[in-house]
Every structure is written in structure tokens, then in C-alpha cells.
Amino acid sequence: MSSLPYRTALIVGAGSGISASFARQLSAAGVQVALAARNTEKLATLTAETGARAFAADASDAASVSRLFDEVDAAFGALDVVVYNASRALRGPLLDLDRAAVEQSLAVNALGAFLVVQQAARRMLPHGRGAILLTGATAGIKGFARSAPLAMGKFALRGLAQSAAREFGPQGIHVAHFVIDGGVRSATRPDASDNTLDPDAIAQTYLDVLGQPRSAWTQEVDLRPWAESF
């Protein structure tokens, strides 16, 4: 029997990396999992493996996010855990960046996170419990050349996490931000050396944070391979 105090979870921005590993671990712990992505076809293998349910949603669109939460409410009832894992990188010389593309990057990395946190908190606050986890990146700590849009969005995500934690923590909602400081192993990055982060290991940390007693909650976790400089 799982010792987790939560029974239902929604992962927004689900895919084959961190979110897939976390979905497997949540499912193994007895948690009902909902997965949200713009393209749900890519989630077929994961849903079959975990028993999770897939929902189509665009995190950058307010109406789509609102509809997503209504659909998950109808299917699962009260949500205990919400994870924001959506991200959109846009790189290039700052002077050459297209404004519309920058706006879309910010819409996914920052505005989408706000919309999801808002919907999650509205549902959790009446119950005085729940957890909201936000997946960040190195770009939320320092901005790199030719990567301004990602830094702008991830800095905003980190600020959102800090503000939400201070506002909702005293009301029973655990808000935590995860700085993924390094490359994550994947099918396109199969490097299994100590230079990359194992998504299963990252997911284990997410799970550990969910199990924390409220007398010692983590607000931010910084994860990197031991060989990574920082």
C-alpha cells in the first residue's frame, strides 16, 4: 500500500520523458493518473502501460485549460496532484527572433503554467490539501546567449512557483518547483553516462517531494548529474 497522501493526479504537457516516468511511478503507487497533451496519440503506449487516461488540451489556451479541468473533474473527481511539465524552447539571435514565435514560447512556458496553477488551486483550496509541481530548467536560473525566450518563460515559471507557494502553502497546498539543470536522457538523447539525468531518477524525486510531511515541505529542488558544473 502506498504511503502517498494523494490518490489522483493530472500531468499537463505529458510526453515520453520526465512525465512518462512520473506517470509510471504514480500508477505503481496506486494513484489514478490523467495525462494532458495537444497530441494524445503519442500517449497511447503510456496509457496502455499505466492505465492512465489521456485528454487533449493546449496549455497556452485558457478555454482549453478550463475545459481540461472540467473533463478531468468529471472523470476522476477531486484532483490531489497537478504537474505542469509543458515547455517550448525557442532559440536564435535575439535580433532575429520572430515576435509571434516568442509570444507562443512565453504562452506555453509561463502563461500556461499560470492557467493550470489557477485551475488547480481553485479545486484544491476548498479541501485544504493538494500538491502543484512545476517543471523548470537551468534557463530559469540563468539566461544563455541565443536563448532569451526560454529564459524569459522559465524565469516567470520560477516566480509563479514562489508566489503560489507563499500564497497557497499556508492553506494546505504544497507548491514545488524543480530545476532540471542538465540534459535528460531520451530516445533522441540516449547518453546513459553520468553527464545526463535519468528521467526515472527525476520522477523518484518528484514522488519523494509528494511524500513530505507538511512540517518540512520543499519549495524548490535543484537536480543535476553529479558531473555537471554549476
Rank of each mutant, 00 (worst) to 15 (best):
S3L: 13
L4G: 04
R7S: 15
T8M: 06
T8E: 09
I11G: 12
I11T: 13
S19M: 10
A20L: 06
F22Y: 14
A23T: 00
S27L: 06
S27R: 04
V33I: 04
A37T: 00
A37M: 00
T40R: 03
E41W: 12
T47G: 09
T47F: 03
G51D: 05
A54N: 09
D58S: 11
A63Y: 05
R67Q: 15
R67H: 14
R67C: 09
G77D: 10
G77I: 06
A78H: 10
D80K: 05
V82N: 09
Y84I: 03
A89R: 15
L90Y: 15
R91I: 10
D98E: 15
Q104V: 04
Q119T: 06
A121R: 05
P126V: 00
G130V: 00
G140Y: 01
G140K: 01
G140S: 02
A148H: 06
P149I: 01
L150M: 15
G159I: 08
A161I: 02
R166Y: 11
G169I: 00
P170E: 01
G172L: 13
I173H: 02
H177F: 15
I180C: 03
S186A: 00
S193H: 03
D194H: 14
P199M: 05
A201W: 13
I202G: 12
A203R: 00
T205M: 14
R214T: 15
E220R: 04
D222N: 14
D222H: 15
